[in-house]
Design a protein around this nucleic acid. Sequence first.
DNA 1: ATTATATTTCTATATTTCTAGAAATATAGC
DNA 2: GCTATATTTCTAGAAATATAGAAATATAAT
Lengths: 96, 96
Amino acid sequence: MDLEVAAKALKELGHPTRLAIFKRLVKSGHRGLAVGVLQEELGIPNSTLSHHLSSLVSANLLSQDREGRTLYCQPDYGHLQAVVDFLQEECCSDQK
Amino acid sequence: MDLEVAAKALKELGHPTRLAIFKRLVKSGHRGLAVGVLQEELGIPNSTLSHHLSSLVSANLLSQDREGRTLYCQPDYGHLQAVVDFLQEECCSDQK
DNA sequence: ATTATATTTCTATATTTCTAGAAATATAGC
DNA sequence: GCTATATTTCTAGAAATATAGAAATATAAT
């Protein structure tokens, strides 16, 4: 895990709307949720939601797969874990 | 831990310079480092560094204590841990 | 082909953030 | 009080981000 990559993920999670989206997906498990369900549950206009979702995808925090007209969004647990590990690693290694 | 508070912390960590500052402090242990040492090690102009540091303080990610003319900065491990816990909690609780 | 549904792209506006030089403030030593 | 050192505040321009309506695209159903 590289600093720029970690910063990108943290930055995208660091917005209340995107964090709410991500938390909702984490809660829903590996199958994820459809964009439309997120939109209805969170009450975000479609264009705004779409932008936030592509930000999260660009940070590798979620993946999407289409089933007919419906696009499912799944959180990427592995990437989140790698970012968390990066944050915590090397703690106090400089200690005298 | 509340969503807004977590988002704030993640947002402030989500900038390469601030993440580098935070990682450097994490590495240095509980005593932290002086602002001047950070400035020299990371090569950031003083005014820029000062802004980034106050962003991190405003997110409760670090605390500062003064010793004479020198200001030490320490990472707040507890707050970081709370944010990480918030990110991971309720995982898959919606699973059918 | 037409219509309905799901989602994205286009576009524009408003707001926030980043950066760093210059000036100001705080503390300490002489 | 004067000088040096450490850090912050002021300022402002440039760049990035957020928001959402309207139009466009993609897929499916009839």
